[in-house]
Simulated scan of single mutants.
Amino acid sequence: MVCEDRCGCGAVCRRIFGRTNKPSDEDTHDETIPVTLTQLAEARDVKFTQVLDEPLSIGSHIICTGTPSEDLPWFAINVGVGDPESGRGDIAVHFNVRMPQCYVVRNTRRHEKWGPEETTAFRLFPFKTDRPFTIEVIMDEQQTLWAVDGEHYCSYTHRNPNPSAAAWVQVAGVRDATLTINKTDTYPSLAPTPIDVPSRATIDALPSPTEPESWRPNVIAALSNGIPEGQQIIIRGRLRPLLHSFSVDLMDAARDWPQPNVALHANVRAHVESQQSRQLVVLNAWLGAWGAERRQRTARLIPGTQTTLKILRGASEWCVYSDDVLIGELEYRVPPSVVKGLRIRGDLYPEEIYICPVSNSPVVEKCGC
């Protein structure tokens, strides 16, 4: 399995952004809660199928609504080919919500055989019994993206069969399910307008009353004025106790899809050779495709603690600092003025994000390897 970020890293790891949505040390769910065969059979029998009038293509947008019920502990959205009623058709994408275990499985079934499951997600399990949900699915060239209640949840890379060959979409295990299939230019369509990153006069200035009181994990924020020359972006936050990895992207638009260009992708990977004293830092840019990576083992982050990241707009490169230590530099591959959005994903939970001048910031030389 490769990194779900499609960052070109080649990492053999499905948890590149740190969060499997199976229960962990931070959750209290019991994965051994029994589900009877009768309940599963009943969930499969409660189904709604919509035949596609035209093939799915880039920009196809599926919206499913419904309410999980206590007596149906399992529900699924299937995008498939063949006969949907026989139960033997191929399923290009299977999105299976398992309520008692509190995680979501994605998979593909071909010739009545299932492939390897995927269970990672960018957020905690969002479904609750008797609470309505809205799931959005967007079709891209190489993957489908899934959002729950207006917030991106996961992605799933196409396998064989490809969902572009699908003949139907089916919801099973939800009695009040609705399906709408059309085209869209935005995803998630229910997402609120991104918050604009505020500016402060100095790095130590107090926040203004208009600043957000808190920032959500895996946030996408707008940089309407970009990062002006001589300025830096500050991200203060908490690291997950079981630190795996996180990324910060400077993009030309504040959105998940259509995929924006990424002027700077800064990825800290604590899971790679985690016995070493410093974490791996990978820097890159996405301009229709990933470019050449810059790698250095320079970060020394302590899981479960507060940290401060700084990204400085330098004379000819982006400079990335962690707690005043330079951990990486990436030369400009596009003009820095194109940056209009910020995305944070993974095991860094932001508490403060703002822009301020560089001049009063301490500079410490990059630690050696």
Rank of each mutant, 00 (worst) to 15 (best):
N160F: 12
P194R: 00
L190F: 09
N160C: 07
A191Y: 08
L179Q: 08
Y187F: 15
V171L: 09
A165K: 11
T184S: 12
S189E: 14
G173I: 10
S155I: 14
A172V: 06
W168Y: 14
P161C: 00
N182K: 14
I195T: 07
N162T: 03
V169W: 10
V171G: 06
S155D: 14
V197A: 01
T186W: 09
P161R: 00
T180P: 06
I195A: 01
L179S: 02
N182D: 15
C154T: 15
R175C: 06
P192M: 00
T157D: 11
D185S: 15
P188E: 08
Y153E: 12
A166H: 04
Y187H: 13
L179G: 03
I181C: 07
T178R: 11
N162L: 01
A167V: 11
A191D: 05
A191W: 08
T178L: 11
R175F: 09
Y187S: 07
T186C: 05
Y187V: 09
A177C: 09
P192E: 00
Y156D: 04
T180E: 13
R159M: 09
H152K: 13
L179H: 04
P194Q: 01
H158K: 02
E151T: 14
A165H: 08
H152N: 14
P163D: 02
N160W: 13
A177L: 07
L190R: 07
A167W: 11
K183H: 14
A172Q: 13
I181H: 06
Q170T: 10
D176V: 07
K183S: 13
P198T: 01
W168L: 04
Y187R: 06
R159G: 06
K183L: 13
T157P: 08
T157S: 04
T184C: 06
N160P: 04
W168S: 02
H158N: 02
D176Y: 06
I195Y: 03
A191S: 10
H158F: 06
T193D: 02
V174N: 02
A177S: 12
T157F: 15
P194K: 00
D185G: 11
T157N: 09
V174A: 01
T186Y: 05
P198I: 03
H158Q: 02
P163V: 04
T157M: 13
S164F: 15
C154D: 12
T193W: 01
T180W: 08
N182R: 13
L190A: 07
W168A: 02
G173M: 03
P192A: 00
T186F: 10
L179C: 06
A165I: 07
G173A: 01
A166D: 04
A172E: 13
A167E: 14
V174H: 02
V171W: 05
R175T: 12
D196H: 03
S164A: 08
K183D: 14
W168M: 04
T178M: 12
T184W: 12
T180Q: 12
P161S: 01
W168V: 07
A172L: 11
Y153T: 05
K183G: 07
P194H: 01
P161Y: 01
Y187K: 06
G173Y: 03
T184Y: 08
A177W: 07
N162P: 01
T186Q: 11
T193C: 01
S189F: 10
S155Q: 14
